[in-house]
């Protein structure tokens, strides 16, 4: 698989069906260090299914997914524990990732304008703030590959812009980011647009060219 050489993510011929409904029928996607990839497609096209399979939280029926380096996955709906505070979530995941400190959490909280909520229970957070916590939990261990399923749902404009600052910082440090998005106007931000339709992926650059190594 020549195209996958040096890739952080290489998915090939991924198939997935829910009963008789075939969602993915041979989807392939490759991403290299430092690339920002958008997965786009209509509602029900299978974008979230694809991301779950890439993340390893859902089994594919057939196909191959190879990931190198540390992986971070931010699910579409925040997966939190209502009774725990933001800080307790951060400590729980710091234990999971075996982190030596919460320094990175503090940095991310600062970048996303999140610091004042750290003592609040998740149940008391607004939708956008829950999503910030959801995102930070995926970023806490500074992963090499980040899979984000519509990560800015509920964000206000200021937070949305801060989110892109975080993404720019990650890219500058060679991290690979795959984002499911519906926002057409932000297409120019991405290196690769992966169109998911009829169960397969067609990759192009924002200018419409076929990227050499992305599919």
């Amino acid at each position: 698989m020549t195209a996958a050489a040096g890739a952080v993510l290489a998915a090939r011929d991924v198939h997935k069906a829910y009963g008789r409904r075939r969602v993915l029928t041979g989807a392939s996607l490759t991403a290299r260090p430092g690339q920002l990839v958008a997965v786009v497609g209509e509602n029900g096209a299978g974008k979230s299914t694809l991301l779950k399979i890439l993340a390893g939280t859902l089994a594919a029926d057939r196909g191959e997914v190879r990931v190198s380096g540390r992986l971070g996955y931010c699910p579409q709906d925040p997966v939190l524990t209502e009774n725990l505070t933001v800080d307790q979530h951060l400590r729980y995941f710091a234990a999971a990732y075996r982190l030596p400190s919460l320094k990175r959490a503090g940095e991310l909280a600062g970048m996303l304008g999140f610091g004042q909520y750290r003592q609040q229970a998740a149940a008391a957070l607004s939708g956008g703030t829950r999503q910030k916590l959801n995102l930070i939990l995926a970023l806490l261990h500074d992963p090499d590959l980040l899979l984000l399923d519509e990560p800015y749902q509920g964000f206000d404009w200021e937070t949305y812009l801060r989110f892109w600052d975080v993404v720019d910082d990650l890219r500058a440090r060679g991290k690979t980011i795959v984002i499911i998005t519906h926002l057409v106007f932000e297409a120019a931000r991405f290196d690769v647009l992966a169109d998911l339709a009829d169960g397969t992926i067609t990759c192009r650059t924002p200018s419409g060219e076929a990227p050499g190594v992305s599919n």
Partner: peptide
Amino acid sequence: LARPAAGPPA
């Protein structure tokens, strides 16, 4: 499927 978990330590 071959993949790492989200860890190991950062």
